[in-house]
Amino acid sequence: MDTRDTPEQAELRRSARQLAANLGVRSVGDLDDLDRRARLAAAITDAGWLELRDDSGDGSPLASAVEAAIVADALANAVADAAFLGPLLAKDLARRAGLELPVATTLAFNPRLDGPGTATGSATSATAEAVYAVDARGAAEALVLIDEGKGLHLGSITLGSLAETDRGNDLTRAVLTIPTGTAVRPLAGSGEISSADLVQLQALGLALTCADLVGGMRGVIDVSVEYVKERRQYGVAVGSFQAVQHLLAEAHVLMEGSLSVSLHAAWAVDALEPSAALVAARIAKTYCARAARTINETAVQVHGGIGNTWECIVHVYLRRALLSSLLFGDDAAQLNALADDRLGVH
């Protein structure tokens, strides 16, 4: 056992953090800087990070979930407002179906956001249930699973005009509402998506959303610690008050625990049997989603009044954490699944 980064992983971590620090979001005003956003998206593409889960030639992905988690953590740390998770997961799913995706594609989720969106139909035509295209910025299409009654295959929805609709409440990642009945184009040559594929996809999705949560935790704690060292009341920095110190110390400890579970979950995706990987992922998501909620609420609190304004970057982190918590099932969903697994069904 050696849970440290390999030298290559350490280098990826360093460069991903550097890129995110240079091109990520540091203030709410940055969100309107479309030029920066375009450069960020281009840099992610150029780095090849969207291809990490593409086919290496023998059906296995080019890189393990650990590398993908390293990037997810770094991007969330700087609340990066360019797509990563959605396109990466779409490509992971496409690889399982033996397909390549010719245009920028993200993944559509079901209404609870706890798994891929579905459509009903045949190999030639299908219509979607209500689904949400998550991380849709820059995407032309969103993948769904078509249930033909004899196994699951992949279909795609053209986002085109939908791109102008409601973009959701995570200010860094667009979530597009796709109404029931939207046409789905079955993807020619799609192999069947097995139940093991779906378990692995869920483990991957949970592990990567955990990495995203951890990166966000570190980011929002850094912002908060910096703020309380500057902000003065009673003639001293508010960070000198023990009540404030203890809130942030707890936040820091929760972040460390989250990192420990999330690294393991990412490793487990490709190293363990799908069912064991899913257990590792559920453990991580339960812990990380709970921790993220507490940490972000602490961040709002220690900012005082300014923390409750649109101006303050903290809600950008909080909103992102709320979406990442929900994707592939939140802490309550994972905890219940673990309880059913270990304690017998109620």
Binding site: K229, A237, G239, S240, Q242, Q245, H246, L248, A249, H252
Partner: peptide, 14 residues
């Protein structure tokens, strides 16, 4: 006491 140590020596808030 652990939180005092973390805030002071890790987060640099003391």
């Amino acid at each position: 006491i652990q939180k005092n140590i973390i805030a002071g020596r890790i987060l640099g808030m003391a």
